[in-house]
């Protein structure tokens, strides 16, 4: 029997993997992929609560739809920024983008 806790634990593990990727990776595109993983974990949580919690409104599913839309907008804009940075600086490794430090 599928319980709410199972879905929430799966979502927590995807979230942890995504946080590891964001913190440990150097490539900006890999960091973006990890952010997508985190957003998927969030969607999983929203849909799990929409399915298991007693109520008859659709807020969980509609919010998941909005999260997917925002993620699509974010990834398009971030790709454009990363490609522009690569064209100007010749790298997409975030530790080499330190012009604001000095």
């Amino acid at each position: 029997m599928l319980e709410l806790q199972h879905v929430l634990i799966l979502s927590a593990s995807l979230m942890a993997l995504g946080v590891y990727g964001v913190l440990a990776r150097r490539n900006a595109i890999l960091i973006l992929m990890s952010i997508e993983l985190i957003l998927t974990a969030v969607n999983l949580n929203l849909l799990a609560f929409a399915y298991f919690v007693p109520s008859n409104n659709l807020t969980g599913q509609i919010f998941a739809l909005f999260v997917i839309t925002i993620a699509a907008a974010e990834i398009g804009l971030a790709m454009a920024i990363i490609l522009r940075v690569f064209k100007n600086r010749g790298t997409s490794q975030i530790n080499e983008l330190n012009t604001l430090r000095n």
Binding site: L17, V19, Y20, A24, R25, I29, F86
Partner: peptide, 26 residues
């Protein structure tokens, strides 16, 4: 962006902190 050319420098120095943070979150 030729991202596949820098294979050895793919993770940065804060990898132990990242492992600790993700295990703590989980």
């Amino acid at each position: 962006s030729n991202a596949n050319e820098q294979k050895e420098a793919i993770d940065n120095r804060q990898k132990p902190i990242a492992i600790a943070a993700s295990i703590a979150i989980f």
